[in-house]
Structures are given as structure tokens and as C-alpha cells.
């Protein structure tokens, strides 16, 4: 069974399973212990607490004591949490950033510091504490902001945060494009900035210090906008959604070329918003979306078929083009549903017949569907201009 369709075959929202998006992915560390016995690969190997493998930075002796860990997720994910399990003492200050464009630009997700204002220029706020104007109106229009708080004292070697931290309760991802944007990331970057304790001397030489992390976890779901239940590797080995509902793209973020009868939309719990195929009666392979027609139809159908074949024409290739007429013995989708008019070269006054009945326009005294006979009371003349004349 396909989770993207119900038992009756109707589309329904489907989402990939919750995973640790960091698992097995390669982390780029700006500093790694040169002995190679504590590589960055140990950050994402899901080693258990009992035999935890740890990445270690070089031994740092001068400020600034910044070390950066960059984790490409391979594609967009919708994040739920980020966590770092330290093998060394947890640093006093750390910042977590996200990228939504595969590392070209970065924006902050969260800061941890005992001195938020001095280190990051941000007010310190305990998790769960509401922002100054905690309301939908104040937060949602410009999007959630990265919080800065002291590392929680009781979490031991763990530094973790939820993407929901600091947001007003009752926020619904389905109905909030701002929240959808907030939780979306293609890459995560952690900047460890300030060791804990007396080593945190400002300027010049400091006591040797090593950052060491056993596990970097990024909990979330592969982002498919409700149109795929799993992500798979494509032919080039890139992670992409296994799109359903007539969608395509790495995140199922657009309709497939022929599925443009209505605009693309993200699926919600109540409505799958599947992309619909254009209705072209089997006579066109391409169509385009027309917003004006969509509005006029009561937001039901806006697809316009392109390049109708088999001598058909119209928005849905639903009638016959000029010079052809509908053969009522065949269904509209038949490739020979439209027959050539075949108007008689002498008896007909033109080459174009009625597109529905096939009746050619006949000269005076001529009859028949193709105007190939003289009407009763008329007989054939020798003149091609007036082929039938009244019988005297």
C-alpha cells in the first residue's frame, strides 16, 4: 500500500519517517586532531554511549577559539531538534546556523552562551520564556528569531534545542508558511566559540584547549511538502523525495509538466492538494496553467492543452479542428475521432464542413454530406460552377 493514497485510491498527505538526518553524513570540521584517530566521521556514526567514538579538534592555544562543524544534509529537511553530545567539557558559547540553499547563505537557529549580549549581541532568554511581545502578530510576520540562552545546567554533556523553543503554543506547521520556512534546512553549521571555565581568556595565548564531540544529531523529516512518504537516492546519488500526487522536484515542490490543471500546493492533514492532470482527451502531451481560467471556473480547473494532435482543437482538445468533423461512431479520446471533411471539389462551396455533423456547404441543387450528388429535381450539368441544374 502507498501511504500517499487511501484505500479508495484518493490522494492523502504523506510524510517521510522521522530520522536523524545527520546519520552517516560527512561533517566538515575546520579543525581536526591531526593524529587522525578522532576524525569528523565520528560525529555522525551513531555510536552508543557505552563505546562512544569522538571527534576532536586540534589543541587550540590562541584566541579566537572558534571551531566550525558544517553538516550538509543533502537536501531540504524539516527539523525538529539539533543536539550535540560532547566528549569534552561543554563549551560556554556555541552557535547553530542553518542554510536553505546548500551552504550559499546562512541564518542563525540558536545561540548558547552565559554572556549572550557580549558574545552574540543578543538578549539572553531562558527557554520557555516568552518573548517581549509574544503573540502571533508579533512573531509570525517576520518569522521566528534565533534565541540565545545559557546552556542548560542539568543536561550534562548534551547541548540540544528544539525548533519549537520560544514559539507561541498552538503554532501549526500546516497553516504557517513562516514556520515551514523556519524549520527548513539543507545544511547545519555549529560554531563552537568559547570554551568553558578559566581557559576562556580573552586575547593572546590561552591554556591548551580541545573541543570534542561524540555525536551531532539533527532530528527531522525529509522535506517533501506532504507529497512523498520517503526519500531515495536519484540516479546521481542525490537524496530526493519519491514524489506522488503528480508532483516532482527534490522536495516535490512543483507539479509535473502535464499536471497543471490547478496550482501547486503543499498537502495538509485535511487536503492532499494533489496536482491534477490536464484534461486533454488523450490528444495532447503538454498543457499550461491559466490563472484567469482557473478563477473563472471557481478555482477548479485552469489547464489549457497545448498542441492538440489527431486533428483536435480547443482547451481540452475536445472538438475537431477546421476541415475536420467529429466521427460520432468513435469516442472522443480515439485517435481517429476527427475525420477529414472530404468536401466534393465541385459540388461543395468550400472545404470546411460543420465540425460536429460533417456537413459540407453545398452549391445550389447539390446535396449529400460531402455535396457529391444532385438534389432531387436537379441533374448534373457540364458546368463546374453550377454542377446541378433544375430539370426542365
Amino acid at each position: 500500500t502507498d501511504p500517499c493514497y487511501d484505500e479508495a485510491g484518493a490522494p492523502q498527505r504523506c510524510i517521510p519517517e522521522f530520522v536523524n538526518a545527520a546519520l552517516g553524513r560527512e561533517v566538515q570540521a575546520s579543525s581536526t586532531d591531526p593524529r587522525q584517530t578522532h576524525p569528523a566521521a565520528f560525529l555522525t556514526d551513531a555510536s552508543a554511549a557505552a563505546d562512544r567514538t569522538c571527534w576532536r579538534s586540534e589543541t587550540l592555544t590562541r584566541t579566537p577559539l572558534n571551531v566550525t562543524l558544517t553538516l550538509p544534509l543533502g537536501k531540504a529537511f524539516e527539523l525538529v531538534y539539533v543536539s550535540l553530545h560532547f566528549c569534552s567539557a561543554r563549551p560556554d558559547s556555541a552557535a547553530v546556523f542553518k542554510s536553505q540553499d546548500h551552504g550559499r547563505s546562512w541564518s542563525p537557529l540558536r545561540f548558547f552562551s552565559s554572556q549572550c549580549s557580549r558574545v552574540y549581541g543578543r538578549p539572553s532568554r531562558a527557554v520557555g520564556q516568552a518573548p517581549a511581545q509574544a503573540s502571533l502578530g508579533s512573531i509570525v510576520p517576520r518569522g521566528p528569531e534565533a534565541l540565545c540562552s545559557e546552556p542548560p545546567p542539568r543536561t550534562g554533556p548534551l547541548l540540544a534545542f528544539s525548533m519549537q523553543d520560544g514559539l507561541p503554543p498552538g503554532q501549526d506547521l500546516d497553516s504557517s508558511p513562516v514556520l515551514q520556512d523556519w524549520v527548513t534546512a539543507t545544511d547545519i553549521r555549529v560554531v563552537l566559540t568559547r570554551p568553558v571555565g578559566p581557559r576562556a581568556t580573552e586575547g593572546g595565548v590561552v591554556a591548551p584547549y580541545v573541543y570534542s564531540v561524540g555525536e551531532l544529531q539533527v532530528g527531522g523529516r525529509c522535506k517533501c511538502n506532504g507529497h512523498a512518504s520517503r526519500c531515495v537516492a536519484d540516479t546521481q546519488g542525490r537524496l530526493v523525495c519519491d514524489c506522488r500526487h503528480g508532483t516532482e522536484g527534490p522536495d516535490c515542490e512543483r507539479c509535473k509538466p502535464f499536471y497543471c490543471d490547478r496550482p501547486w500546493q503543499r498537502a495538509t492533514a485535511h487536503e492532499a492538494h494533489a496536482c491534477l492532470a490536464c484534461s486533454c482527451n488523450g490528444h495532447a502531451r503538454r498543457c499550461r496553467f491559466n490563472m484567469e481560467l482557473y478563477r473563472l471556473s471557481g478555482r477548479r480547473s485552469g489547464g489549457v492543452c497545448l498542441n492538440c494532435r489527431h486533428n483536435t482543437a480547443g482547451r481540452h482538445c475536445h472538438y475537431c479542428r477546421e476541415g475536420f468533423y467529429r466521427d460520432q461512431t468513435r469516442v472522443l479520446s480515439h485517435r481517429r475521432a476527427c475525420k477529414a471533411c472530404d468536401c466534393h471539389p465541385v459540388g461543395a462551396a468550400g472545404k470546411t464542413c460543420n465540425q460536429t455533423t460533417g456537413q459540407c456547404p453545398c452549391k445550389d441543387g447539390v446535396t449529400g454530406l460531402t455535396c457529391n450528388r444532385c438534389a432531387p429535381g436537379f441533374q448534373q450539368s457540364r458546368s463546374p460552377v453550377a454542377p446541378c441544374v433544375k430539370i426542365p
Binding site: H344, V346, G347, V366, C374, C388
Partner: peptide
Amino acid sequence: DVMPTLDMALFDWTDYEDLKPDM
């Protein structure tokens, strides 16, 4: 009664060469 179809051979195209269809 079904009338016979127009017989193209009976037409005189002398004055209408330019209207004559390919036959």
C-alpha cells in the same frame, strides 16, 4: 431515390481551367 454521384468526366473545364481540381 439515391441520386448518382457527380461524374467528374462530364464537366467541361474549358472556361474554368483555373478551378479544375487535381483528379
